[in-house]
Design a protein around this nucleic acid. Structure first.
Length: 870
RNA sequence: GCCGGGGUGCUGAAAUUGGCAGACAGGGUGGACUUAAAAUCCGCUGAGCGUAAGCUCGUGUGGGUUCGAAUCCCACCCCCGGCACCA
C-alpha cells in the first residue's frame, strides 16, 4: 500500500497545533526546565539541507529529552535578520531590505513547520524588529557606561567590496568572509567593544564547559595568551646615549590598566617615550643575542628616530607598506623587507649599541609594536639578519658549548652561553634571572600578552542596528571654555569625547527612554564607500538635539555588527516580547544558561566567543546571574554534495529539502539525515541512501497496515531485544549517535516482523517517535488505538535483569584464535563455559584440560584458553 | 610550524571503550514472482586457499605490551579542520 506521507504529516501537524502540544510554559510543576537551543538561521530565503541537518537531529534529541518525563524542554527558534545579504539583494532587486527579509522569513517559517519540530513558535525572535534591536541599543549603552564600548582610531580591516569595516574574526586568510574580496587596512575611528578586558576570563571559563575539545582549543588559540616580559632598550640617539628608567614600566597597576585601554584604542600598541623603546618577548633568556631592534612601520617613534639621512628611504618604505593589502602581507612571509632608521639602542644587559630597523614583519597591533631581534634563536629574525647582513650571535646552546656561524635559528630551550654572569643557566632560569635583574633597574616587567583584539562593531552599512549615540560640539565648547589652557584633562578620548575632522565633540548616550533609535526608511541604502553608512545621507536622521544642552547635535550613523544581535538572542527567548526590559530576570533565571546548544562549528571564534563575552560583561553589570551562556555544545558536520564536494549552485550538486519532503515526506528525510552517518562529521549526500530509507518506511507502513498483532507473552529473545533496543536508542540519542539508533530500530523491526507481539510493537513506535514524529503518531493513535499523543507518552524503560536473560554466544579462543562459538545461558559462569568447551571437538582438537595453562572468562562474551608451552 | 580530529569492505559506516572486525544501510550479484520490465521478496557479497569441514591473511606503515589490539604505548606516513611573521 502507498505510504500517504503528506496526508499523515499535515493531519498531525494541525492536530499538534490545535492541542498546543509544544507551547512551553515557564514553569511546570514537578519538572525541571531544560533549555535546548539551535543556532537561529539567517533568513536567506530557503532552508537548505545544512539547516535540516542541524535542526532535525537536534529536534530528535529535544523530543527524546522531553519524553524522559522530568524535564520541561524549551526549544525556540527565530531569525538572525540583519545583515549584508538583505542589502545586497535589495540593491540588486530594488526591494527594501526589510521587505526582502520579511518575505524570506515568511517562507522559511513554513519550511521550518514542514520539519515537524517541537519549536515553541510563540517565542520567536526576529532581530531586525525594533522590539528586538531596541535592546541591542540598550545593551550597547550598558557597555558604554563603564567604557566597555568606546570609540577609537584603529587600523581596521576594510572590505572594499562591502565598503565596510570588519572585525578581526570576520577576516579569513586576508579576505572578507562575506564576499571574498581582499581586505585592506584603513585608519578610521570606530566603535569597539573591549573584549580584551575579558581575555583571561574567557580563557579560564572554558575549563568548565561541556564543549567539543576542538572548539575550546580554537578559542584558546584565538585568545592567544603568551607570558613573557616587556624590556626597555634605552635609545642611543644619533650616537649619544639618553638612558634612564622607562616611563611606562614604573607606573602603578591602576594607571596601567587605563593605559592599556588607550593602547587598545591606538593603532599601535606601543607605549614608549623619547628615552627608550619597549619590546615584548617570551624569550628574555636570549637577550644577549639581541643584535638589533625592529619597529613596526606604524610605530609612533618611527618619525622621531629616523635620521635626516635616512628619511627618504624610510618614507619610501612606509608608503609601500601602507599600500599593501593584508593578503599581500600574508603572502610575503618568506622574504623580509625593511629599512634602517639611522638610530641605535642599547642592549640593556650587554651594553652594546644595536641598530634600530623598521620592517612590516613586526605587527603594530601585537605586544608593543617593536621587537628585540635575536637572529640566532628566531627564524624570522634570522631570515631578516641574513637579508640585511646583520650580526647573528648564539646565546643559547643545546650542549652548553658555544658554536659559531649557525646555519639556521636554534629555537628550542638550552643552556645560556655568551651571556655574562647568566651563562650556564638553563633557558628557564635565564629568563627569570635576566628579567629579575633588569626589573630592579626599572628596565623590565613580567607581562602577559593576548593575541585577541578588541571587537570593532561599527559597520558602514544600512541594514543593522543604529548605534544609539549623539555627538555635541556645543557641549565640547562649553567644557573647553571652562578650562581653556589645559583642556579637559579629565575627559577620556573615545568615551567622553571624540574627534571628527579635527574638531572635538562630546559623546552622549541616547537616553534610555528614547530607545529605540529607529532605523529610518531611506531611499538609497547603497554603501557610501566614504567610511560612513548610508544613514549619513539622511539629514533628518543625522540631526538631533543634544540630550544634555538641547542644542543641535548629530547622530552616529554607523550600524552595529550583526554579531551583536546574535550575542544575546538566547536570553531574549526567555521573554521574547517584553517591552519593559531586555528580559524579565525571573524568566531568565527559569531558563538560562542554555543547557544544550547545537549548531555549526564555523562559529567557534565568532558568535560563540562574542556570546561568552556578552554574558560575562552583563554578569559584571548585574544584568545576568551566570557567566557562561552555553553549558553544553555540540556541532553537526557538513552535508556535502553527492560528488563529495561542498554543495554549490555552480557545481549543480545542491539537494533541496523542499523537494525531498515533497517526494518522500518529512519523516523519511528526518530518518535519513539521522541515519546518513556520523552526525558530528557529516558527509556526502546519497540519493540512493534516502531511497533505501523510503523503502524501510514503506515496509514499516505495510507491516502496520496488515499485521495482526499478537497479545501473547513475548518470547525471551524478543523481550531481551526490546530492552536492548530501548537502552541502545536512548543512549545513542543522548550521545548524538543518531545513525546507530536508527540501525538498532531497524534490527528491532526485523524481529517484530517475525513475532508481531503487540507489547513490543508499542515500544517500537514509542522509540520511533522522535525520528519520525508524524508516522509514529499515526501508528500510535490510529493503528494501535492508544490514547493521547505518542510524544506525551513516557520513554520506555528497560531492566538490567531482562538484559541478562536468554542465551548468548560465547566465543572460545585458543591461544588468541577463535575456534568455537558456544550458545549458553546469559548467566553462564566460567566453570559452565569450560564444561561446554570440553564437549566441543573443535576445542579439544587444540587444547585439553591436560594441556591448558590458563583460561580467561568474560561473561556473556568470551572464554580464552591458553595452552602450556610445548 | 603549532593546535584539534581522522585513516576500517566497492560506498556511507558499526564495533557496548581491550574481547566474534565489518552491525545497519547503499551498491553489486544470483534466484523467486512476471509474457516482460519496474516494484516487491529471498540468498550471497573483505581477500586468498579448499569439493567440503575448515584453514590462512586482513582495520595507513613498522615495532611493542597483552591470553587477546581497529582500540593501549613508541616511531613514522598520509588526509581533513583551525591558527600562523603573535616575537
Amino acid at each position: 500500500m502507498q505510504y500517504p506521507a503528506h496526508q499523515i504529516e499535515s493531519k498531525w501537524r494541525t492536530w499538534w497545533e490545535t492541542k498546543k502540544l509544544y507551547r512551553t510554559p515557564d514553569r511546570v510543576k514537578g519538572k525541571k526546565n531544560f533549555y535546548h537551543l539551535v543556532m537561529f538561521p539567517y533568513p536567506s530565503g530557503d532552508l537548505h539541507i545544512g539547516h535540516w541537518f542541524n535542526f532535525a537531529p537536534a529536534d530528535i534529541w529535544a523530543r527524546w529529552k522531553r519524553r524522559q518525563g522530568q524535564f520541561n524542554v524549551l526549544s525556540p527558534i527565530g531569525f538572525d535578520a540583519f545583515g549584508l545579504p538583505a542589502e545586497n539583494a535589495a540593491i540588486k532587486g530594488k526591494l527594501h531590505p526589510r521587505v526582502w527579509t520579511m518575505q524570506n522569513i515568511e517562507r522559511m517559517r513554513e519550511q521550518l513547520k514542514s520539519m515537524g519540530a517541537i519549536y515553541d513558535l510563540s517565542r520567536e525572535v526576529v532581530t531586525c524588529d525594533p522590539e528586538y534591536y531596541r535592546w541591542n541599543q540598550w545593551i550597547f549603552l550598558q557597555l558604554f557606561k563603564p567604557g566597555l564600548a568606546y570609540r577609537a582610531p584603529v587600523a581596521a580591516n576594510w572590505c572594499p567590496q562591502c565598503k565596510t569595516v570588519l572585525a578581526n574574526e570576520q577576516v579569513v586568510d586576508g579576505a572578507c568572509d562575506r564576499c571574498g574580496a581582499s581586505v585592506v587596512q584603513k585608519h578610521v575611528t570606530q566603535w569597539l567593544f573591549k573584549i580584551t578586558a575579558y581575555a583571561d576570563r574567557l580563557l579560564q571559563g572554558l575549563g568548565e564547559l561541556d564543549w567539543p575539545e576542538k572548539t575550546k582549543a580554537m578559542q584558546r588559540n584565538w585568545i592567544g595568551k603568551s607570558e613573557g616580559a616587556i624590556i626597555a632598550f634605552p635609545i642611543a640617539k644619533f650616537g649619544s646615549v639618553i638612558a634612564g628608567p622607562s616611563a611606562w614600566l614604573g607606573v602603578n597597576s591602576a594607571k596601567q590598566s587605563r593605559n592599556q585601554q588607550e593602547i587598545a584604542a591606538r593603532p599601535s600598541g606601543a607605549r614608549n617615550d623619547e628615552h627608550s623603546i619597549e619590546v615584548f618577548t617570551t624569550r628574555a633568556d636570549t637577550l644577549f643575542g639581541a643584535t638589533y631592534i625592529v619597529l613596526a612601520p606604524e610605530h609612533p617613534l618611527v618619525d622621531a628616530l629616523t635620521s635626516a639621512k635616512h628619511k627618504p628611504a624610510v618614507e619610501r618604505y612606509l608608503n609601500a607598506a601602507r599600500r599593501k593589502t593584508e593578503l599581500e602581507r600574508l603572502a610575503e612571509t618568506k622574504e623580509k623587507t625593511g629599512v634602517f632608521t639611522g638610530a641605535y639602542a642599547i642592549n640593556p644587559v650587554s651594553g652594546r649599541k644595536i641598530p634600530i630597523w623598521i620592517s612590516d614583519y613586526v605587527l603594530a597591533s601585537y605586544g608593543t609594536g617593536a621587537i628585540m631581534a635575536v637572529p640566532a634563536h628566531d627564524e624570522r629574525d634570522f631570515a631578516f639578519a641574513k637579508t640585511m647582513k646583520l650580526p647573528v650571535v648564539e646565546v643559547v646552546s643545546p650542549d652548553a658549548k658555544p658554536h659559531s656561524r649557525p646555519s639556521r635559528a636554534y629555537m628550542d630551550d638550552g643552556i645560556l652561553v655568551r651571556s655574562d654572569r647568566f651563562s650556564g643557566m638553563s633557558s628557564a632560569d635565564g629568563r627569570r634571572h635576566i628579567v629579575d635583574s633588569l626589573a630592579k633597574e626599572g628596565l623590565a616587567k613580567v607581562t602577559v600578552q593576548y593575541r585577541l583584539r578588541d571587537w570593532i562593531i561599527s559597520r558602514q552599512r544600512y541594514w543593522g542596528t543604529p548605534i544609539p549615540v549623539i555627538y555635541c560640539r556645543k557641549c565640547w565648547e562649553i567644557q573647553s571654555q571652562n578650562k581653556p589652557k589645559a583642556p579637559n584633562t579629565k575627559l577620556r578620548a573615545g568615551i567622553d569625547y571624540t574627534v571628527f575632522q579635527g574638531k572635538e565633540y562630546v559623546i552622549h548616550s541616547v537616553p534610555e527612554h528614547d530607545l529605540p533609535v529607529l532605523l529610518p526608511d531611506i531611499r538609497d541604502f547603497k554603501p557610501t564607500g566614504a567610511g560612513t553608512s548610508p544613514l549619513a545621507r539622511s539629514k533628518k536622521f543625522v540631526s538631533a538635539n543634544c540630550p544634555k544642552c538641547g542644542g543641535p547635535a548629530k547622530r552616529e550613523t554607523d550600524t552595529m555588527d550583526t554579531f551583536v544581535d546574535s550575542s544575546w538572542y538566547y536570553v531574549r527567548y526567555a521573554d521574547s516580547h517584553n517591552n519593559k526590559r531586555f528580559a524579565d530576570p525571573e524568566k531568565v533565571a527559569a531558563w538560562l544558561p542554555v543547557n544544550m546548544y547545537i549548531g555549526g562549528a564555523e562559529h567557534s571564534v565568532l558568535h560563540l566567543l562574542y556570546s561568552r563575552f556578552f554574558t560575562k560583561a552583563l554578569f559584571d553589570l548585574g544584568h545576568l546571574k551566570f557567566q557562561e551562556p552555553f553549558r553544553a555544545l555540540r556541532h553537526q558536520g557538513f552535508v556535502l554534495g553527492e560528488d563529495n564536494y561542498k554543495m554549490s549552485k555552480s557545481r549543480g550538486n545542491v539537494v533541496s529539502p523542499d523537494e525531498l519532503v515533497h517526494r518522500y515526506g518529512t519523516d523519511v528525510v528526518r530518518l535519513y539525515l539521522a541515519f546518513m552517518g556520523d552526525w558530528s562529521k557529516g558527509g556526502p549526500w546519497s540519493s540512493k541512501g534516502i531511497e533505501g530509507m523510503a523503502r524501510f518506511v514503506r515496509r514499516l507502513w505495510d507491516f502496520f497496515a496488515q499485521a495482526k498483532f499478537s497479545e501473547l507473552e513475548l518470547s525471551a529473545e524478543l523481550r531481551r531485544l526490546e530492552h536492548e533496543t530501548v537502552k541502545k536508542v536512548g543512549a545513542d540519542i543522548a550521545g548524538f549517535q543518531f545513525n546507530t539508533a536508527v540501525s538498532s530500530l531497524m534490527v528491532f523491526f526485523s524481529r517484530l516482523q517475525i513475532e508481531p507481539a503487540r507489547e513490543a510493537v508499542k515500544v517500537f513506535v514509542q522509540l520511533l517517535a522522535p525520528f519520525a514524529p508524524h508516522l509514529a503518531e499515526e501508528l500510535w493513535q490510529v493503528v494501535l488505538k492508544e490514547r493521547g499523543s505518542v510524544h506525551e507518552s513516557p520513554w520506555p524503560k528497560y531492566s538490567k535483569r531482562t538484559l541478562q536473560t536468554g542465551t548468548v554466544t560465547i566465543v572460545v579462543q585458543v591461544d588468541g584464535k577463535v575456534r568455537e562459538r558456544l550458545t549458553l545461558p546469559a548467566g553462564a559462569t566460567e566453570r559452565q563455559a569450560l564444561e561446554a568447551a570440553w564437549q566441543s571437538p573443535k576445542v579439544v582438537r587444540y587444547v585439553t584440560p591436560e594441556t591448558l595453562r590458563k583460561s580467561v572468562f568474560v561473561p556473556k562474551r568470551l572464554l580464552s584458553l591458553v595452552r602450556k608451552q610445548s
